[in-house]
Simulated scan of single mutants.
Amino acid sequence: MNKMTEKLIKDTDENRKAKFNMVTMIIGFAIMLMGALCLFIKSISVEYVDKQGFPHENFSLIPMDYLFALAGLIVIITGEIIYLHHKH
């Protein structure tokens, strides 16, 4: 193989790694966006206490927000670690 062929193969491999990193980042941010959406829905939903004293609220959206944010952060960090590990 000549130098140009080796360079093209190396560039293609680097582009594939960069594309994988970009897709991983987009997925991570999309998961984090779902968490923010849960928090937004919780903030605009109607909360009230009925005549018997029972509260009516979407409390389950708060833990879901934290789980989505944590999962998105894990995906982003893991993708970056893999990208930096394979870059060298």
Score class of each variant (00 low, 15 high):
Met22Ser: 15
Lys3Leu: 10
Phe68Val: 01
Lys51Val: 13
Met1Thr: 12
Ser43Arg: 11
Tyr48Trp: 06
Ile41Ala: 08
Ser43His: 12
Gly79Lys: 02
Ile31Val: 15
His88Asn: 08
Arg16Asn: 14
Glu6Thr: 06
Arg16Gly: 08
Thr5Asp: 09
Cys38Leu: 03
Met25Gln: 15
Ile74Tyr: 02
Phe59Leu: 11
Pro55Tyr: 09
Asp50Pro: 11
Pro55Leu: 10
Met34Asn: 02
Ile74Asp: 04
Pro55Val: 11
Asp50Trp: 07
Leu39Arg: 03
His86Gln: 15
Gln52Phe: 15
Met4Ser: 13
Ala30Arg: 02
Thr24Asp: 09
Cys38Asp: 03
Asn15Ala: 15
Glu47Val: 05
Gly79Ala: 05
Ile41Thr: 09
Ser45His: 09
Asp11Val: 05
Phe59Gly: 10
Tyr83Ser: 02
Val23Arg: 13
Met64Ile: 04
Glu80Pro: 05
Ala36His: 00
Gly79His: 04
Gly72Trp: 00
Met64Val: 02
Thr78Asp: 07
Leu61Lys: 01
Ala71Val: 06
Met64Trp: 01
Ile62Thr: 08
Ile81Glu: 00
Arg16Leu: 12
Tyr66Trp: 14
Lys87Ala: 07
Leu73Ala: 14
Ser45Phe: 05
Leu8Ala: 09
Met4Ala: 14
Phe54Ala: 14
Asn15Asp: 12
Ile77Gly: 04
Tyr83Pro: 01
Asp13Cys: 06
Thr5Pro: 06
Asp13Lys: 10
Cys38Phe: 07
Met64Gln: 05
His88Gln: 11
Ile77Ala: 07
Ile27Asn: 00
His56Asp: 01
Val23Met: 14
Leu84Asn: 11
Val46Tyr: 13
Phe59Asn: 07
Ile82Met: 10
Leu61Pro: 00
Lys3Tyr: 05
Asn58Arg: 02
Leu73Cys: 12
Ala30Asp: 00
Phe40Glu: 00
Gly72His: 00
Glu6Ser: 13
Met64Ser: 00
Lys42Leu: 05
Asp11Cys: 10
Lys10Trp: 06
Phe40His: 04
Lys87Phe: 09
Thr24Leu: 08
Glu14Ile: 05
Gly28Cys: 00
Asp11Gly: 04
Asp65Trp: 14
Lys87Pro: 02
Ile26Tyr: 04
Ile44Tyr: 03
Val75Cys: 10
Glu6Met: 14
Thr12Leu: 11
His86Phe: 11
Leu61Met: 04
His85Lys: 15
Leu84Gln: 15
Lys87Asn: 11
Asn15Ile: 08
Ser60Lys: 04
Asn2Ser: 03
Val23Ile: 15
Ala36Lys: 01
Leu37Trp: 03
Glu80Phe: 13
Glu47Asp: 10
Asp13Gly: 05
Asp11Thr: 08
Ala18Tyr: 11
Asn15Trp: 13
Tyr83Lys: 07
Met32Ala: 13
Phe20Ala: 14
Tyr66Gly: 15
Met25Ser: 10
Ser60Trp: 13
Leu73Lys: 05
Val49Ile: 15
Ile9Trp: 07
His56Ile: 05
Leu37Phe: 03
Asn21Glu: 03
Ile76Thr: 10
Asp13Gln: 12
Asn15Val: 06
Tyr48Glu: 07
Ile82Thr: 05
Met1Phe: 06
Val46Pro: 08
Lys19Gly: 06
Ile44Leu: 01
Pro63Asn: 03
Lys42Phe: 15
Met64Glu: 01
Ser43Val: 03
